[in-house]
Each structure stands twice: as C-alpha cells, then as structure tokens.
Design a protein around this nucleic acid. Sequence first.
DNA 1: TATTCCGATAGTGAC
DNA 2: GTCACTATCGGAATGAG
Lengths: 303, 303
Amino acid sequence: MAETAEDLEDLTRTESVASSADSPESTPKQDEAQTPTARANTTKPSKPETKRNAFTELMAPKPRAPISQAPQSLASKASQVIRGVWRGALIEYIEHPERFPNQVLRVTAHTVLIKDAFPKSTIHLLLLPRSPAHYLLHPHTAFADASFLTTIRAEAAEAARLAAAELARQLGSFSASNRARDEAVGRGVPPDRLPPGRDYAREIRVGTHAHPSMAHLHVHIISRDMRSERVKHRKHYNSFNTPFFVPLADYPLAEDDVRRETGYQNANLRRELVCWRCGRTFGNRFAELKRHLEEEFVEWRAE
Amino acid sequence: MAETAEDLEDLTRTESVASSADSPESTPKQDEAQTPTARANTTKPSKPETKRNAFTELMAPKPRAPISQAPQSLASKASQVIRGVWRGALIEYIEHPERFPNQVLRVTAHTVLIKDAFPKSTIHLLLLPRSPAHYLLHPHTAFADASFLTTIRAEAAEAARLAAAELARQLGSFSASNRARDEAVGRGVPPDRLPPGRDYAREIRVGTHAHPSMAHLHVHIISRDMRSERVKHRKHYNSFNTPFFVPLADYPLAEDDVRRETGYQNANLRRELVCWRCGRTFGNRFAELKRHLEEEFVEWRAE
DNA sequence: TATTCCGATAGTGAC
DNA sequence: GTCACTATCGGAATGAG
C-alpha cells in the first residue's frame, strides 16, 4: 500500500487549490515551546520527528484545565468537553488548518478539506464545515438547515471534482475508457482539446455516516473502490456500503426516514458483507471479502 | 521452554525401566519403503528429517485401503475405522512401541507408557493399555472391569513413581523441603542412606478425561503444576482441573455418578478459570491465568 | 459508528 | 474432550514525562 500513500501525498501538489497554510513545517519557535511554561494552551508537538496530524496535535501534553478560568459561553464549554479526547480530534484541522500542510487540501470561508488520516478507499477526503454554530451538530440536524446545506453542497461538489481529478491522475493509465485521453496527454495535446476520458466523478461518493464517531461534522468524499488496508473490519466496510452511508444529496432527511433509527443503523453495520461491485455475499467472512475486493479493484480501474 | 523439553528427553535415560524398543531410529528398510507399492499397510514417515511420533507415523501418506481385502473380524474393522484419522493416532504406540524410542518409556505385557507429545505440565505421561478387548472402550466402561482395573492401577502406580522420580530430578534443587536430601546426594551419600526429601509423589495425579478425544484408552500421569506452553486455552486447563479429570482411584464410577453426564462435563470445560493452587478466579481471562501460573510454579517448586 | 492492542472465541482441515 | 491455522469478535486504553 506504499504506492497509495505516496500517491495521496501527491494530491496536495497536483491541483491549483493551494491550501491557506503558510507556516513552514518546522520553525525555531517550536523548539522554544518545549518548555512547559511556554506551552500553555497553544499545544505543540513534543517530538518534531513525529509526523504531525490532528491526533498527535490534540494529544500533545497540555496542562490540566486550571481551576480558575475566565467565564465561558456555553458554546465554548461544549467545545472544551470535546477537546483532548479522540472524538474531538477534528477541531484541530478546523481551527488550525495551517498546522497541517500535508493533510489540508483546501480552506475556504466555510470549510476545510482534508485527507482522511485512515482512508478507506483509494481517495478518501473529509469536508469539515467551519461554522461553530453547526460543527457539533449531528449531520441530520445540521443539514436540516437549508441555507447551510446549500453552502456545504457547493463546497462538497468542488471537493468531489478535486477527488475525481486525483483519481484520474492515479488510475487513468489503467483504464480502457480513458485510453484515448491518456494517450492524448502523452502526445502533449493541450487540456482544452483533450478527448473526454473516463467519468471519474461517477466513482466518487459524497455523504455522511448516520452515527459519526468523530464529534465534528464531516462529509466523506470517497472513491467507490473500498480498497485500502485501513478497511479492517465489517463496520468499516458497512459504514460506507449500506444505508448507514447517507448521500449528501438525500438531505434534508424526512422526519420519518428510517435511516434516522438507531436500531436500523446498528443492524446495517452488522449486516452480512456484500461486494459493492458484483453483489456477491460473504456472510461474516471479512478476510475473504478483502481478497475479493483486490480482484474487483483491478477490474474496476480497468473499466 | 527449551529447558523443559530437554529435561523430558532425559527422562528416557534416568530410570532402569528400559523400553522394549530394539530397532534403531533409522534403517535402510525405511528408505526402500518410500515407493508406494512397498508401503502397503505398514506406514513409514515420508520425510526422514521430521521427528518421528505416532502422529507423523499415522498421518504419513498411504494408499487407500484396497477394495478387495481378506475377511476381517469386527474388532479389526473397528480398528480400521480409527486408523488414519487423528483420533486413532495412539494405536501406533500400542502396536509399534519400538518405533518410538524417544517417546516410549516402558512396555509391559499390559501397557505402553509414553511421554505425552503435547505435555500440559512439567511431567505428562500417558499409560496405554495394550488389550484390544479394552483399548477402544470409553474409560468409564473399561474400568468397570474390576480385573482390568486392578492390572492398570498397578501399572499406573509404577508410572507415577517414575514420574515422581523424574520430577524430583528436575525440580529437587529448587525445593526447600528437599534441600537436605539434595545436599546429601551432593556429598555422595548412597541412595539407601539418603534422608527423605520432598514427597513428589503427592504432586503427581493419575486419571482419565471424561470425554477423551483420542480413541484409544489412555490414563494421564501428570504433575500438578500445569505449567506448559502447550496449555493454550481454557479447555486444556479445565480438562485437568475440574471433575472432567477423573482420578483412576475413583473407578469404577457409580451408575449415577454425575461425572458420566455429558452436559455436566461440557459445562466443566467452559467453567471460569480457577488457579489450582491458590483458588484465585480468572473468569475467562486465560492469558492472565497463564501469567499467574508462572508465578505459582516458582513458589510450588520451592516448597 | 475514531485506532490500536490484546485476547477470547469459532471454524476448518489434517496424510 | 487432538493440534495448528486463520479469522472473527470483544473489551480497554488512548499523550507523555
């Protein structure tokens, strides 16, 4: 899977959507921050050699919350509850996207787009709304707000285009239906005169999980394949391949939509495994599904 | 555990109970027997470098039983059913003890005494009755025969003495109550004038399993400790440390003895784990019990 | 429905 | 209640000095 990891690295460099990050990976200030008194609330990674992400960032040593504090709003208290536990890890990307130049792909007024730290497909991005009024809401609640939904949908569409372009870059050379375009690129044909290639946008899905584990609102932008060594158990797979995955297009959900029901969604996660591509069933035999997905991947990318 | 393995090797050499084995480990005939036509019913190990035991012996490739055979007695048919499957592996020790000089400790008119191939304690022997009229019976049935029981008991007692002597040899130097004897041995005191040491016979248990998996009647002669890397799961442990283990002294069982009941014995195998020495309970936490048994072993051998 | 580690549980096949 | 192998399932901790 090293190939995949390297290719995802490339994704940060291929597009014109430069992140707003402007701080270099390492600065003298970080070394100064090693003294406990200098750390205070702005946490820094204690081991510079550790690859930085929101998890290491969030879990970095910090003093216990002081007994005497300035009065807080209810909103910031809620945020405080989340901070410092894994459920709240995404807040770091939202509040400090510039700290993660390797993960953050795009920052707009409304969202931060990052690479999922544990991608479940060849391409797996997360779109994180920045609005504090929304970002701790359950997706079903947040996307009941029509205006907010419209905003996020537009950003998600842009993210999906980016994901499709990266998928084309990574897999285009394996694709039969993309061959003419691929060869034209090889001949130096300018972009505006290239023949249409495979429609990779069709292979990108956009949606939420019915029961997110990470507290902050996030929309998955994920390629169809489910080929990743990070897919390690049934729930990983079923969370993207049953109605537990709620397409962003389906929002707002009707009040009586069955997908709101906890029991129904828990059952979805425990369903028998079914190949997303050929429909073959695998019961509980996850390892067998994994081997099968490898074969399907080869055929899928060759379409 | 290499120490244990080596010490068990020693057991074949320490006592005067020479096995009846007289054939060397390897003969030219075995190589001749490699051709399929020469194998017939007397199976040979196909890979000479593999350490030989009844399992490799029994499982070695052999031709299917020929369609046309001489008429057989019912007894030999029963034996035929067992032959060639794991449940019948012990027959090789019974019929061909001379093939296993490293496993067989003693052969008498009535029994073969072997080292268990997967010992569940520091000392773990199996006493195999040679009587074809008994050796495929369930232990509860076989030991309802008073005369047979008397014979096997006498042999088992001898086997237990052998086991105790080997335990003393392996562990005597760690034992407080054995120190005087140990030091006397060191000073060259003749055996008949040695002070009494620790009573290792008390640490040897003799009995059967209520539901044996190996088809041929076998009596376990096992040291008390249960310290062995071959103890790998709960059933291994509980089969020796619940009423699933039936002391030979308890035979014949009464008709209404609860230990005859299948449901009761299956429950015994699934019981929560309890340390045989201190009575501490471990629920289902087998790994924790294993670590605890290591500590108990050190204290037990120091008694 | 975060991951990771450890370990308990279950099914299979065995020349 | 044979073993050995593979895998599934289940709980607990989760950073760092």
